[in-house]
Computed example of a mutant assay.
Amino acid sequence: MRVAIVTESFLPQVNGVTNSVLRVLEHLEQRGDEAMVLAPDADSGAVPPFVSGAPVVELGSIGFPGYPDVRVVVGKKWRTERTLAAFEPDVVHLASPFILGWRGMLAAERMGLPTVAVYQTEVPGYASRYGLGHFEPLLWKRVKDLHEKATLNLVPSTATMRQLAAHGIPNMRLWGRGVDTTSFHPRFRDEGWRRAVGGDKEVLVGYVGRLAAEKQVEALSVLKDLPNVRLVVVGDGPEREALHHLLPTAHFTGLLRGQELARAMASLDVFVHPGELETFGQTLQEAHASGVPVVAPAAGGPLDIVRHSHDGWLYAPGDHKALRRHVADLVGDERKRLAFGAAARERAESRTWHDICEELVHHYEDAIRVHERAGSAEV
């Protein structure tokens, strides 16, 4: 199979979209398939020319005002179609499509290629968090226009599927995300790191992810006076300085990757993710793989990941008193923390990237068949 992946985000930026694309590329290479990536370029020029044997074609882009990590593709639209035509893909995978993805969709449509659009980022909801709520209806229209054209639409959670159905999105299939249970593992818990970070505090409660408005990390302020607790914030982003002022006693690690990230995750006692716009929530799965219980809002992706009162707690969105109450419950009961953590690890072991990517290949095959049947019907 020849798969062209058109992605809104790619290396050197590390986020949920990039991570998923990297795992898919690894899997396609292992299967012996051929892949190509179309992605925005980067100011640093650090986009690799090949990843897992797949050539990466950079397209000119600029940073989004106020959030330069988000790249907006500019320049001639014909290059997307010319690149796809030269590769001759069997299917076009659109990763979190919006701007570049729209170009990719139109190019695939003109060329008569089947498309699999992977919905991953709730752009309309983000607009409200950045004070641009008046654009939300227009943004939902773009989402609908784009996904109506796709042969298949893959969505990461049941809550997201319900939301998109309410907006009239057709042809949806559920496709979750895998987790690397080798890289994220309880064995990476490091007591020396815990002492260095926690000081005289015995319990580490942490968040891992982008420090951006849509993640609502400021909600951690309800936890800053919990006794015997040190807040740990792992990540970077435009809200970092404001969060430093809001959480003066928290430990900020900055952006961590690889073994450093795995060590930090496994060394936490409780993982908290307060964002209410998560279509999935990959860091929640990574916490579970690390044997760490999760506290998150009962909205979006966490509804499919966290089993309430089994491997974590879910609270009503916006109810930060409940957030504090659930964290305090786990902070004060080590046996419960350990039991929740063991259940979390067991659940994560059933969600490997190999199985998830094999599901994706079947979706590719279905999209090709659907497209062929539609072509035959037109004839």
Rank of each mutant, 00 (worst) to 15 (best):
V143Q: 03
V47W: 07
V91G: 08
R177P: 01
L84D: 07
A42N: 10
S309Q: 14
V205Y: 01
G131I: 01
G291V: 05
W313A: 02
R263E: 10
L226G: 01
G125V: 12
V6N: 06
S183A: 14
R263K: 00
V123N: 00
H362Q: 03
P238Y: 06
G301Q: 00
D225E: 15
L243G: 09
L94Q: 06
R240G: 05
L330S: 10
G318I: 10
E378Y: 09
Q163P: 02
L231F: 11
G16R: 05
Y315H: 08
M1G: 07
G75R: 05
R345A: 01
A348R: 05
S267Y: 14
L220Q: 00
P114V: 02
L174N: 11
A250E: 01
H244W: 12
E349Y: 00
A117V: 15
G312S: 10
M105E: 12
A196E: 15
L28W: 13
A212G: 00
E365M: 08
A166E: 15
G206T: 08
L106G: 02
L255W: 14
N171L: 11
L164Y: 07
V295L: 09
V155T: 00
S290M: 13
L28T: 04
L113N: 07
Q282S: 06
Y126E: 04
R103K: 02
V270D: 10
S309N: 14
P89H: 08
T121C: 05
R347E: 14
E26C: 01
F87H: 03
R110M: 08
V361H: 00
H244G: 01
G237F: 04
L255C: 05
A348S: 08
E202F: 11
P227E: 12
N153L: 10
S350W: 03
L223P: 12
P55A: 09
V72D: 12
Q259E: 12
E349A: 04
V205D: 10
Q285W: 13
E260F: 14
S96G: 02
H147M: 02
E358S: 09
D33L: 01
G32I: 15
P156A: 00
P317G: 12
L246H: 00
R195K: 11
F280L: 11
R82S: 06
K76P: 09
A299H: 04
L268K: 02
T83V: 00
A196N: 15
Q216K: 02
A4D: 05
L261Y: 08
A262S: 12
A219G: 09
F252L: 05
A35M: 05
R325P: 03
V327Q: 10
R337A: 01
